[in-house]
Write a protein that binds this DNA or RNA. Structure first.
Lengths: 237, 237
DNA sequence: ACTTTATCTTTACGATGTAAAGATGAAGCT
DNA sequence: AGCTTCATCTTTACATCGTAAAGATAAAGT
């Protein structure tokens, strides 16, 4: 691919003077990548997200993240062990934010159908605003679900979805049995919105949108698609 | 990862004797990786598919394919130029086979709804039988749609889907305009079946299946999911 | 003050994609 | 025929990547 030689990395911080480490502990309001100890873990996660949304999933390498954070390429190892570790931790963050967005959308006023629509739109909106993150979250390949943080966040995400479909109270759909029509309703809602999102992000819906009436957007098409399906939702609170 | 040293590759065919190339041209029934000229291109594609279904998408590397085919690691370059080239060509083959399976399913007897169900089942069945291939086909990242073979095969796939939904004759849904409800119907069908397939392949449906009534399979859940949606299909031939 | 320990850097190795130069044998030309 | 040409394959080379291991460095504990 011939991108650029690795020598171009953000150089290892202290060039020659060896003792500018006595810089103010809090430059403006937050510690700006402190010297030795510091909050490298968080800095790496932020750098990783920046790299992800800038260069895509393919560009999200351990070394690129370390470069972006201005540390040596082996520094992340101590905090995440693996690329899998870093990626999984980042995905957990993505799920957490995603869950918050979905919860907020579910608290909108209106009929249950209105709420369902709002949730669906929030779902797609999150993916459109954070395509890299969404791709990361749903590309299992390099994800380790045995990590507690990721497991919990993803589980909460599913529980929220299932709860919003299965006409229970608020999300509390633990581990109990599901009737076939309940399971089908959950699978339907999830498949619809996830499939639409994936096709949209991969550009597969571009053709359909181009042939649709002028002014049709991804949102309005989603709306039309759901409106034909939603009435079949189980009668619930 | 420490897999294995590259020395373990299928060694470069003629070890020391230098002239066993006068072996029978057709060993049993087909040329078995001929010497110089030969059908390397096809052999590489077959090797690639083998590697893909054996080691997954991550294991599908140029060098692994060359190894599998028993040639030097740079041999594929001349036939495909890139990893992208090889992968795209393989995806084109996948789409072609997929299209054939879908067409066959569409020719089953029964009502239009029966046909639609048969097609949906064929869709998921293909993905389950060829998970590597399906993942390859719908993971745009390393695909070059400007390649004529891939472009044509993918286009045909979409046309078949659109045609089967939009109640036209047989597939002829060229480039004309689409009414919003038509576009929505296509998006709905595609999103449903693609989303379901993706979630299934990534293991995301395992929880739902486990909590479903005993005996519920991926197929029966798909069936239940579709039965609640199908009645809303546009009234067509 | 000295040691311990967490954190970060260097160095090293095998793997990968890709480019470039060297072999090799089939096909074409005179 | 003999020679050249050229597509095909192999070697060699290089930049990159993930990961392991060993060395440095500063904060913390004794």
């Amino acid at each position: 691919m011939t991108i650029k030689t690795e020598q171009l990395r953000a150089r290892p911080r202290r060039a020659a003077t060896t003792s500018l480490r006595a810089r103010p502990r809090r430059a403006t309001a937050e510690v700006a990548t402190p010297y030795h100890h510091g909050a490298l873990r968080e800095a790496l996660l932020q750098a990783a997200e920046r790299v992800l949304e800038r260069d895509g999933l393919a560009g999200l390498t351990l070394r690129a993240v370390a470069r972006e954070a201005g540390v040596s390429h082996a520094a992340p190892t101590h905090h995440f062990k693996d690329l899998t570790g870093l990626v999984s931790e980042l995905a957990a963050i993505g799920f957490t934010r995603f869950n918050a967005a979905m919860k907020a959308a579910g608290e909108s006023p209106g009929t249950p159908i209105d709420k369902a629509m709002a949730r669906a739109h929030a779902y797609v909106a999150y993916a459109q605003a954070n395509p890299g993150m969404y791709g990361l979250m749903f590309r299992t390949e390099r994800l380790d679900y045995s990590r507690p943080s990721l497991h919990a966040a993803a589980e909460a995400s599913f529980a929220g979805l299932a709860g919003s479909v299965a006409s229970r109270g608020e999300g509390q759909v633990g581990n109990e049995e599901l009737a076939l029509d309940q399971a089908a309703a959950i699978a339907r809602a999830w498949s619809l919105v996830h499939g639409y999102t994936m096709l949209l992000l991969e550009g597969r819906l571009a053709d359909i949108l181009r042939r649709s009436p002028a002014g049709t957007t991804a949102e309005s098409l989603l709306d039309a698609m759901l409106r034909a399906t939603v009435p079949k939702l189980p009668p619930g609170a």
